[in-house]
């Protein structure tokens, strides 16, 4: 039978990965209801009192509006939950079939690469939505809006990549959901100086949300965007995605000791006892 080039595998996997993500009804409901509700609650509870926020890249201490900072943290928080959960659920649901596809000849790197790109698309689109909804509660200047959007996208990328990793790693749904929810809550809470004595301490640099928060803080409240923050955020996302690739490779590998796949013609392939 004539063969189609290997390059067809990537677009096919990308389309189905996006489709899988889009079919998560609970994620759509959370986007429509939870994001505005969470912003609304923050806007209602947190006063406009000034707060001190440390920009680590320059060492500057910024005086910021507590409510505005609270809203940015709320947006980040909802993104960690929704993107992390949606990506995790889609990856986990598809894993048994992915294993079968790899066995049939799908190249693992193309399959997981397509999933990573789909995750990035979802992260950026959801981040844009969360930034637009934020406008109903706070109207930053254009540069501030752009910085918040970029920071939200960065945060969504990190937790999307974490969802990807947990989706191929953990055994049960509950472990994955628990890790995403607790991780996201703890991470974003620590970065927020509203009622949190740990905020502005150097230890925060070791948490995933540090980069996006610094980028948003610098860009939206004066002091200029933190390129260090951007780099750290991208590094976290890349590290999670790279780990996901390694785990995916291990969990979907064929045990047949051969250079051919089930779909390819081969003269003979051999399985000897396991090493």
């Amino acid at each position: 039978m004539p063969e189609r080039p290997l390059a067809r595998q990537f677009p096919t996997a990308l389309v189905f990965a996006l489709r899988n993500q889009a079919r998560n009804r609970l994620a759509w409901i959370l986007l429509a209801a939870f994001v505005p509700a969470w912003y609304g609650l923050m806007a209602a509870l947190i006063p406009h009192d000034p707060l001190t926020y440390r920009l680590f890249s320059s060492g500057r201490l910024l005086r910021v509006d507590g409510r505005h900072l609270g809203l940015v943290t709320a947006g980040m928080n909802s993104l960690t939950l929704i993107v992390g959960f949606a990506v995790f659920a889609a990856i986990r649901r598809a894993l048994p079939l992915d294993r079968r596809l790899v066995f049939a000849g799908y190249r693992q790197s193309l399959l997981v690469g397509a999933k990573a790109l789909a995750t990035a698309v979802v992260a950026v689109v959801v981040a844009l939505y969360a930034t637009v909804v934020l406008l109903a509660f706070w109207r930053p200047a254009a540069a501030g809006f752009a910085a918040v959007f970029a920071a939200f996208a960065l945060m969504a990328l990190e937790y999307g990549a974490l969802g990807l990793l947990l989706g191929v790693l953990v055994k049960g749904d509950l472990e994955g959901f628990f890790l995403i929810i607790m991780g996201g809550l703890t991470d974003t809470f620590l970065q927020n100086p509203v009622g949190n004595p740990v905020a502005n301490k150097p230890i925060l640099q070791w948490f995933p949300s540090f980069g996006p928060m610094q980028f948003a803080g610098g860009g939206a409240f004066g002091g200029g965007p933190s390129w260090l923050g951007l780099g750290l955020g991208l590094a976290w996302a890349a590290a999670f995605a790279a780990l996901a690739l390694v785990v995916f490779q291990r969990r979907t590998r064929s045990r047949r000791h051969a250079h051919t796949s089930a779909g390819e013609p081969s003269s003979a392939s051999r399985l000897t006892s396991a090493a």
Partner: peptide, 19 residues
């Protein structure tokens, strides 16, 4: 099918496989 590794022994396959 090659989805599980044997502890000992071997499997020889000539041609393509469907599982």
């Amino acid at each position: 099918a090659g989805t599980l590794a044997a502890d000992a022994g071997g499997v020889e396959l000539h041609g393509t496989l469907g599982y």
